[in-house]
């Protein structure tokens, strides 16, 4: 991975959390490979991607928000709303997917824009604003319908069931390609644009960012818009995966996304972290689920127990890290 400078004796402190998560992922994979037959194959990792492509996209948006020191609780509901709008428009009036998908993305971005504007203009804690957004979006789902709506549009289902064959027996779904593109674009934006710099500077110290003449307000509004867009795209990917729209989809996904970002080493107070960490965070979460399904006898709720324990470990790690750098 490119974040490590080879040949330097010590790893800079800021890469440490990402490195720890990376090692954890490798360790889990090796342990799984030793314990379960058929675990140590490339397809297991690809399946983690396939099963979590939507979470990955949502977590990318969440990373932007958390890097500015904010939080977005509305993402799970926006994902559900997106599946619901997509399913109802394709099944009811029979709109074609190439109209529905852009519309859904626009609605998600719009919701994010409004929340970001409220956070900035009225100087309200993002926790409250996005909590309101969460209830709003979840409620809107049920005004569309209370039952699950299956998606039968032929183009949509055909795309969803496409298998992209790689070398050997390995394959991925189109969702994985979309998610990877989102990650690459986001990495580029965060590290090579003025907007990306403003995101880090705002999270590092909002007051000094203001006194440096950075557009703090615009940055804050933009990150919530990005998060809204990513949630809507995550919703589209989830409807590929589920082939249905339902108001109870993605319940609690905002917390999974936050967990992935934190496990990936991004500081909840903002200003420090990498998208690569978030990717690893999502992979770690996915791998825990895989291990538990391989174990067979464990209830799937053990996933939550492991995630809980991991979060504790990473928050403690961050505490140590930030205590050391704040001298």
């Amino acid at each position: 991975m490119t974040t490590l400078t080879v040949g330097r004796a010590s790893v800079p402190a800021k890469y440490l959390p990402v490195l720890v998560t990376g090692c954890l992922f490798v360790a889990m994979f090796v342990a799984g490979g030793i314990r379960y037959e058929g675990f140590a194959s490339g397809q297991v990792i690809l399946n983690v991607f396939i099963d979590n492509a939507f979470l990955l996209v949502v977590a990318v948006g969440m990373t932007f928000v958390i890097l500015t020191g904010g939080i977005d609780l509305s993402v799970g509901s926006v994902v559900a709303l997106s599946t619901m709008i997509a399913a109802s428009l394709m099944e009811g009036p029979g709109w074609p997917p190439y109209l529905v998908v852009p519309l859904v993305l626009a609605i998600g971005s719009g919701l994010g824009l409004v929340m970001g504007y409220i956070v900035h203009a009225f100087d309200i804690q993002p926790f409250i604003v996005t909590l309101a957004g969460m209830f709003l979006a979840r409620g809107l789902c049920y005004t569309i319908g209370t039952d699950s709506i299956p998606i039968q549009d032929p183009t949509f289902t055909a795309f969803a069931q496409t298998r992209i064959d790689l070398f050997g027996d390995l394959w991925i779904s189109p969702s994985v390609v979309i998610a990877v593109v989102v990650v690459l674009v986001a990495v580029y934006v965060l590290h090579y644009t003025r907007f990306g710099r403003s995101v880090y500077a705002t999270g590092g110290s909002e007051q000094s960012a203001l006194l440096m003449g950075l557009p703090v307000g615009r940055t804050k509004i933009t990150v919530y818009t990005v998060s809204g867009f990513c949630s809507a795209l995550g919703g589209v990917l989830l409807s590929f995966y589920m082939l249905s729209g339902y108001g109870l989809h993605a319940v609690g996904m905002e917390l999974d996304a936050i967990a992935a970002v934190v496990i990936g080493g991004t500081l909840l107070t903002g200003g420090s972290g990498f998208l690569l960490g978030t990717v690893l965070g999502v992979l770690v979460l996915g791998l825990i689920q895989t291990i538990i399904s391989f174990e067979g006898t464990l209830s799937s709720w053990w996933t939550k127990i492991f995630i809980g324990m991991l979060l504790f470990v990473f928050i403690l790690l961050q505490r140590l890290f930030s205590a050391r750098s704040r001298r």
């Binding site: 880090y200 590092g204 000094s208 006194l211 200003g271 420090s272």
Partner: peptide, 13 residues
């Protein structure tokens, strides 16, 4: 420390 710098970032940034 409060108004002039972003302490958790590097010199370059």
């Amino acid at each position: 420390k409060r108004y002039g710098l972003n302490l958790i970032q590097d010199i370059k940034t």
